[in-house]
C-alpha cells in the first residue's frame, strides 16, 4: 500500500499526553519508553500507514510538536 502521509515528531516539544495516539484513525502512533528532556514519554510514528489526515495535529496542544506531510497529488 502506498504511504499517503508522513509524520515528523519534534521530541523536545511533545509532552506525551497521548491525545494524538487516541485520535489517530489508523492507530499508527504510540508512546515510547524513552523520556525527553522534560521527562515525558514521547510519541512515535510506527512508520507505516499514516494517511496524512492531520487529525493528530489538531488534537495536539503543542504548537510545533507534530508536522504532518501528505503525498503530493
Amino acid at each position: 500500500m502506498a504511504l499517503h502521509g508522513n509524520l515528523i515528531v519534534s521530541i523536545e516539544e511533545c509532552k506525551g499526553c497521548g491525545l494524538c495516539v487516541e485520535a489517530c484513525p489508523p492507530k499508527v502512533l504510540h508512546l515510547t519508553q524513552q523520556l525527553n528532556h522534560c521527562g515525558y514519554h514521547t510519541v512515535e510514528y510506527t512508520g507505516q500507514g499514516c494517511t496524512g489526515c492531520g487529525i493528530c495535529f489538531y488534537v495536539c496542544p503543542e504548537p510545533g510538536a507534530l508536522a504532518v506531510y501528505r503525498l503530493a497529488a
Partner: peptide, 24 residues
C-alpha cells in the same frame, strides 16, 4: 511529500519565557 499541517506563523518561532523550554 508536502507539508500539510504545521506550526502556525502567528506563534513566535522561539518562546522566550524559559531558557529550557523555548518551543513548548
Amino acid at each position: 511529500y508536502v507539508l500539510a499541517q504545521h506550526r502556525a506563523h502567528s506563534f513566535y518561532p522561539v518562546f522566550d519565557r524559559k531558557p529550557d523550554a523555548q518551543h513548548q
